[in-house]
Design a protein around this nucleic acid. Structure first.
Length: 566
RNA sequence: GCGUCUGUAGCUCAGUUGGAUAGAGCAUUAGCUUCCGAAGCUAAAGGUCAGAAGUUCGAAUCUUCUCAGGCGCUCCA
């Protein structure tokens, strides 16, 4: 409808005597004529600010221009336009006919899925990486936000018809993994020992993993115990193990496998998250890929050798200092393998999206500059940085440190509040916004809890449907003249604009906010207007069926249940 | 110190990309059950959009500065 009005205005402008110069300056730009939904009923359904924009060029009062435009449009008598008003600075407000407004009801009811109209004109091959938590323990609540946001992006992008490949990047090598493995070793040897250079992991899962590996490794470790007791730094301990336990690498891989298959994947299953691929960081080294990339960097004169390490010249791009690619001990940094990983993605995909914690933000320019330096088009990469989420219970903030083992696992949170609440609350705020996640709210069964409130609207409508004969369904907009009905129709008419904006800008919270508003409007309607009275008003039934459909398809986009009874 | 994100009602947050009188929920106050699910509805009250300057017909939104908070500034990942 707003496109129709836009066209009407455009054709109307032809009739105003604009100078050629003005025409070329204005009409040539596609979006010069703007038509938008009004925020208040008293301003009609749509408005345009065209008169204000033109006043600059015409050097005329915007209000007189607006009146001129109004007169021309009214003269032509468009059937869907009921009235036009000109307000204060020069707004032109359009009031459309009830029939035009109400047509959205049948349109929604007839549609298969309300998101069907959102297909992209040019579907892309998109690589979407999210979670990618280090396999050093089960997922905890701190991973939840990135996880849910990532999977929601996936749904949204697939709704648009993109070919989305989801990937979990597994950091299965590096210092943290050694710390983890040694933590298990210590548990296997029943050795409690603080190191002076690093904190070990000591969550309950460490001993669980140790018990699984006991039979295989205990005998091999016992002979080493005497010597190991004397090592009081982590590095010397690790070195001794690597020299004297020839199956250390095997043990390390077993630990990672257990964590991935018996913890992380189980947690992901609970939330119906399935990755297209699990990409192992070690694969980048196995086939020499990283070293080829390092050669490329060297060829571009972007790296140098100093103190036994290879450094990337990131100061050249404004970084505070240069950054290490290969450590003096020959080990690759995360930075080095990540450059390689992204170069693979860049070769195979049209667009790359990484969902990362905002604590990585300082790292982003470094990575992009390295990739740009060796000739890649980094505009294909977008990195979504997620701010931290804090959990609250009974008004108290719950701490979550992985290392101490005192964290709350994601699984225990799912068990407590259910996946619907998880799926909702983690995306209900803008990602740049710090998120306070209140467990009490998620558990409450009233208006305090938006998930419940939306689901309740859905269930209420279902209940009404169950009481009537749906074969008699009929729709006549003349039956919907109550102000609350008009408000609902206005809201339904805005779903396409809202959802399109949400989808194009990848902001799911715009959709959840809309669903909440729609539910609110419905509950108010329900509380004040009888739908089943002595006589059933089937137009009203049609209206609420349309509402229910929007609620259902909206909830389903986020993998949230739309219960028929609760 | 440098970088980055944030600052909107007592609290938690929206705000359709620069539009008209800034909106919800919670909390507070006052109402509504012979009636489709009260898990709800109807009201009231609550604001210097952190502050200042600028851009323009028009700013919570854009620019600059100041203040406050989170995060980052490892040969960690």
């Amino acid at each position: 409808m707003n496109i129709k009005i836009k066209k009407i205005i455009e054709s109307c402008l032809q009739e105003i005597d604009l100078e050629d110069e003005v025409i070329s300056k204005t009409l040539s730009s596609v979006d010069f004529v703007e038509v938008q939904k009004t925020t208040s009923e008293s301003h009609g359904d749509y408005y345009s600010n065209i008169a204000m924009k033109l006043s600059k060029f015409l050097r005329k009062n915007p209000e007189t221009i607006a009146k001129q435009i109004k007169a021309i449009i009214l003269e032509k008598k468009y059937e869907q336009i009921k009235n036009i008003e000109v307000k204060k600075p020069g707004f032109i407000n359009f009031f459309i006919e009830n029939s035009a407004r109400a047509s959205i009801v049948t349109k929604i009811i007839k549609s298969k899925n309300i998101f069907d109209g959102f297909k992209s004109m040019n579907p892309k091959k998109i690589h979407l990486e999210f979670v990618s938590a280090n396999p050093t323990g089960p997922l905890h609540v701190g991973h939840g936000r990135g996880l849910i946001y990532g999977k929601t992006l996936c749904s949204i992008l697939r709704t648009q018809g993109h070919d989305v490949h989801t990937e979990y990047y597994v950091n299965n090598i590096g210092k943290q993994i050694d710390i983890l493995s040694i933590s298990v070793v210590l548990s296997l040897m029943n050795l409690k020992k603080p190191f002076n250079d690093v904190d070990i992991y000591n969550g309950k899962y460490i001993s669980t993993i140790a018990s699984k590996l006991k039979i295989k490794y205990e005998d091999k470790l016992i002979p080493l115990k005497n010597d190991l007791t004397k090592k009081d730094s982590f590095s010397s301990f690790l070195e001794y193990i690597m020299v004297n336990l020839d199956s250390y690498l095997e043990l390390r891989n077993s630990v990672i496998d257990i964590i991935i298959y018996e913890y992380i994947k189980i947690d992901l299953d609970e939330l119906d998250v399935v990755f297209s691929n699990w990409f192992l960081e070690s694969e980048l080294i196995k086939n020499n890929f990283v070293y080829n990339i390092l050669d490329k960097i060297k060829d571009k004169d972007l790296s140098y050798l100093k103190d036994g390490a290879i450094w990337f010249k990131s100061t050249k791009y404004g970084d505070d200092k240069d950054r290490v690619l290969v450590r003096a001990n020959g080990a690759l940094t995360y930075f080095a393998t990540d450059i390689a990983y992204h170069s693979i993605k860049l070769k195979k995909y049209d667009q790359i999206i990484n969902v990362w914690g905002s604590d990585h933000h300082g790292y982003v320019p470094r990575l992009l500059n390295a990739l740009k330096g060796i000739g890649y088009d980094t505009t294909k990469i977008s990195i979504h940085l997620i701010q931290f989420a804090n959990l609250y219970r009974d008004g108290e903030k719950i701490s979550m440190s992985t290392r101490s083992g005192e964290f709350i696992t994601l699984k225990s949170l799912i068990d407590e509040i259910g996946s619907d609440a998880i799926n909702f609350f983690y995306i209900d705020k803008k990602i740049e916004q710090h998120l306070d996640f209140d467990i009490n709210t998620a558990l409450s069964k009233d208006k305090d809890n938006p998930v419940y409130y939306i689901q309740y609207a859905h269930a209420r409508i279902e209940k009404i449907k169950s009481k009537i004969d749906l074969n008699k369904l009929d729709f006549d907009n003349a039956q919907l003249l109550e102000s609350k009905e008009q408000a609902l129709l206005r809201l339904l008419n805005s779903y396409e604009d809202t959802f399109r904006m949400a989808i194009n800008t990848l902001q799911p919270q715009m959709i959840t906010n809309y669903l909440y508003k729609l539910s609110q409007s419905f509950h108010s309607y329900y509380g004040n207007i009888k739908i089943i009275d002595d006589e059933i008003n089937y137009s009203r039934v049609s209206l609420i069926i349309a509402i229910q459909k929007v609620l259902k398809d909206g909830l389903n986009l986020f993998n949230i249940n739309a219960p028929e009874d609760m």
